[in-house]
Amino acid sequence: MVTEEGQLYTIEGITAAILMVLTAYFILNSTSILTPGDTHISDMQLEQLGNDALKMMDTAKSFDATGSTIYEKKQSDLETWLSYDLITNPFIRETVIKEFIDKFHKYADDDQLKLFAKIYYSDGTNVQLLDFWNPPPPDIPPFTNRDHYVTVSRWVYLKDPEWDPGEPKTVLLEVYLWRN
């Protein structure tokens, strides 16, 4: 209440106002922001390991002088596997998947890693998906999209893949990695 004496408010009002402001300030200033578990470091480590393993799988361990072309002389395991008939031949598809996983585990030195892979390629007009992993072999855990996974990818040059013969193509191999 304003009077001629230049006094704005009663002291109780002042105290109450200050108390309310202070309380509001402390409440707002101390708000806890709930965040999910910080995983960016472990994700980075897994991505780096995954990229390293893919690089190693795409490097021939030795030079094959019997090959007729440079490509065949330096053909890596990855180029060999992804060139097989992964669509119409289920036995070859399952064999490739198992060998891929075994080699990945060996190079990453971690047999607890779970994997899932896809291939993207261009048919000249559109980008197509070669979902060769589904369904996975019986003893391979499927990818459910509920696990926290990281994605690593690598461009692989295939001279003449059996699943789309005729022309060489560069495909994008995308691998999902996760741990239980």
Partner: peptide, 10 residues
């Protein structure tokens, strides 16, 4: 006993 403090104090 009016309960009012001066403005300078405020």
């Amino acid at each position: 006993d009016s309960g009012q403090i001066s403005i300078d104090f405020l």
